[in-house]
Amino acid sequence: MSRKISMKQAINEALDLEMRRDPTVIVMGEDIVGGTGAHGEDDAWGGVLGVTKGLYAKHGNRLMDTPLSESAYIGAAVGAAACGLRPVAELMFMDFMGVCFDQIFNQAAKFRYMFGGKAETPVVIRGMVGAGFRAAAQHSQMLTPLFTHIPGLKVVCPSNAYDAKGLLIQSIRDNDPVIFCEHKNLYGLECEVPAESYAIPFGEANVLRDGDDVTIVSYGLTVHRALEAATALAKDGTEAEVIDLRTLSPIDWDTIVESVERTGRLVVVDEAHPRCNLATDIAAFVGQNAFGALKAGVQMVTAPHTPVPFAPSLEDLYVPSADSIASAVRRTLSPKGARSIAA
């Protein structure tokens, strides 16, 4: 059975299904239940935006509120994972990674390698990413490139409810540490999602739109901007292929290269800052492995090299827009774009 649900509901459902299936799955985070120790309603919050609402009624103490001590509870999730549980720890906003990163990148990410392949750390750290919520500089970042950089971490960033459910289920079942990035501006977006359980394998991009003229690669919120741009471009007769990466580590190089070999043009869109991000990563990979196929220089569309501004009027300029993506596509089509590679 399939019905329309939001990405928020899809995440809730994935947690519910996995907790039912596997008693070693526990879920922890700040106010993910809410009202702990207080005298009002139980399950008063269900997470700051209500993502985990209702799970406490179904799973009781396997959902754990935490003190405001990310270093301690994220580390505890990592340690428990190394000892046989499958903890899903919520970092309300991924920006709070700054407080607890050691437990993730020096500990969780490295156990397996440092210990000569003997450790398994099946922990999931899930949290909100992305701009556009008027949440300002410390609650809006797209830190995905930081995580992708670290060997030993897997990095997921779904663009819709269907993928969020299947990818979160896979993340929980996966035996490596996973950073699961939820774009807060996609929480309300609905699509058809089967009620049953299903897992989407890592490293498989999704081709959302076919086209032979140009390849647009993105992930998360900007996938939707890319699709908008593709619709606009189609009116002028340009058919763009739109690829949603879904997982950033591992990444589906094959789908990207196969597409570029057909289209000869590549635009990479990343909501992260312009230096050392997914866009530069993919551009470099294609430059190295599919150079011969390129008819124009690769174009990158990213957020600027600035923190996220608060003022809505500035924040709206910050996130890559459909217009900026369409312009980038046009640059790859112009004779100048073509020359830039020949020169």
């Binding site: 405001l68 920006d95 709070f96 407080v99 500089a137 410390q138 608060f310 003022a311």
Partner: peptide
Amino acid sequence: RGKGGSMHIADLSKGMMGANGILG
């Protein structure tokens, strides 16, 4: 100048080193 918002108001000339979005 509109860049910080409620959670980041600061006035260093008054010795106010900023509201803060990160607890602690």
